[in-house]
Design a protein around this nucleic acid. Structure first.
Ligand SMILES: [Mn+2]
Ligand SMILES: [Mn+2]
Ligand SMILES: [Mn+2]
Ligand SMILES: [Mn+2]
Lengths: 218, 218
DNA sequence: ATTAATTTTTTGGTTAACCAAAAATAATAA
DNA sequence: TTATTATTTTTGGTTAACCAAAAAATTAAT
C-alpha cells in the first residue's frame, strides 16, 4: 500500500471518528474517499494487517494508537500548510484546503518544523481548526456554535465547521471572519435565524449557517 | 498514465537531451529513473501516443513541442521551490533538491505564481541553474567551467553541475558558494589542479571539481 | 417475526507501473 | 566481415488501487 493512500484513509477515519476512536463504517469512508464500499473493505483489511486500524468484519474500523499517531501527524501537516498558504502567501481561506490536500503528503519533517517555526508555532489554522503539535497533542478549547449563543451576548468568531467555498465566500462578504467580534441582536423564534452586529453593521444569519460558525463567548 | 509519472519522464528526457531536442535512449532513461529498460520502452510508447514525445523504435526518444513545454514547466516548478526552500525557509543548497523533487508535482499554477512573486521573480536557483519563465523561456548566459579559466584571471561562482550532497558540502566548507569572487593563482600542468584565492584564503581544487563549478569571468 | 432496505463482503475483472528472462536488434571490436 | 557486446523489445507475471455485480449479513420497518 502506497503511503499517500494510507494517509488519506487514516486521515478520513480520524475525521469521521471525530478525534475519538469511535467506530467508522465502510459506507461513510466510501463516501468521503469517493470510492465504492468494496474498495474500502479491501483497504481496511490491509490497514489492519499494518496494525494501523482495528477492523472488525461487518462491524467497523477504528484507529490503533499508531494509526492515530499517523493521522494526527497528517492533520498537523495539512493545517500547517493551510496556515502557511494563508498567512505567508496571501491565499484566501477558501483556497487553502485544496492545495493543502496535496502538500500534506510531502514527507519531510524538517520542512514542517521550519514552516511551523516561521509561523510562530500556530495552534489554529485559517478555519479555526486546532493544529496538533509534534507529539499529536491538540489544544483544548471550549468553543461553542453560534447557534447556541443567547441574545444580547458578545462573542468572537473562532472557526467554521463547513469548509465549502460558497460558505466561506458568504462569510467573507459579511466580514464574518476569524477573530471578528459580534453581538447577538435578536433571535427569531420562528426559524432560529439570528440578527447580529458585526463591524457596526447588522447581519442576518440563518440557523443553518449559525450551526457552522464556531465562537468563543466574551 | 499518472501525471507524476509523466512529469518525471518528461523532465528526465529534457535533462538528458540537454535542453535541445537531442535523441535520448532507453538505457540513459532507465538509469536516471531507476527502472529497467523494458519499463522505459513501455512508457515512451505511451508518451508517444499522448504526443508528448516522438519515439522511434530501437532508435530513441525526443520531446515534442508540447512535451517540451510541459518539461520546462516542471523544471520551473522544481527550481522555484528550491529557491523558496533556500531563501525563505533557510534550507541549505544541498537539502533543497530532494524536497523539490516532490513539491514540483503539486498542481497549482497560482501557487508557483505566488512563490515566484514573493521571491522577486528569480532567474536562477540556489545551484545557479536558470529558472524558465511562465512561457518556458530561459535566460541565456555565457558562463564557463572553472576548469576553462586562465591563470591570474578573476571570476565569480555562478553555479554547479554536480548536485550531490558531498560535493556541495565540500564547496561550502571552502566558502565556494554562489556569488563568491575568486582569482586563479596557479594551474598545475601535471594534473590541471587549481589553486585559487577565495575570501582571502588559498583553496586547492582538483580538475574534477573544477569541471563542476560554473563561473562568470569578471 | 417476516419482509424490505441498507450495508458489507465476495468474486471476477481492469489499468498503471513496475520487473525478469528471453528474443531480437544494433553497435563495436577483432 | 564475423564475432562479441550492448541495447532494445517482447513476453509473461506481479502488485496496488480501483470498479461492477452478485451474494451474504445486518439493520430497519411493517
Ligand atoms: Mn483543510
Ligand atoms: Mn483547515
Ligand atoms: Mn534540483
Ligand atoms: Mn537546482
Amino acid at each position: 500500500m502506497q503511503s499517500e493512500t494510507i494517509e488519506n484513509y487514516l486521515k478520513t477515519i480520524y475525521h469521521l471518528s471525530a478525534g475519538n476512536s469511535t467506530i467508522v463504517n465502510n459506507k461513510q469512508l466510501a463516501d468521503k474517499l469517493k470510492v465504492i464500499p468494496a474498495t474500502v473493505t479491501e483497504a481496511v483489511k490491509k490497514l489492519h494487517d499494518l496494525k494501523l486500524v482495528i477492523y472488525e468484519k461487518s462491524y467497523g474500523t477504528r484507529l490503533t494508537s499508531s494509526g492515530s499517531k499517523m493521522a494526527l501527524n497528517i492533520v498537523r501537516r495539512h493545517r500547517i500548510w493551510e496556515t502557511y498558504l494563508a498567512n505567508e502567501l496571501g491565499f484566501g481561506w477558501d483556497e487553502v484546503h485544496e492545495i493543502a490536500e496535496e502538500l500534506e503528503h510531502i514527507k519531510n519533517d524538517k520542512l514542517i518544523k521550519k514552516l511551523s517555526e516561521k509561523l510562530g508555532h500556530p495552534n489554529f489554522d485559517p478555519h479555526g481548526d486546532p493544529i496538533p503539535d509534534e507529539k499529536g497533542k491538540i489544544q483544548k478549547s471550549n468553543f461553542i456554535k453560534l447557534s447556541e449563543v443567547k441574545v444580547k451576548h458578545h462573542c468572537k468568531i473562532m472557526g467554521v465547521t463547513d469548509h465549502s467555498t460558497t460558505f466561506l465566500k458568504y462569510l467573507e462578504k459579511h466580514e464574518l471572519i476569524i477573530g471578528a467580534s459580534i453581538t447577538i441582536k435578536t433571535i427569531e423564534d420562528f426559524d432560529n435565524s439570528i440578527v447580529l452586529v458585526c463591524q457596526k453593521k447588522d447581519v442576518s444569519v440563518s440557523s443553518k449557517a449559525a450551526e457552522c460558525i464556531i465562537v468563543e463567548t466574551i
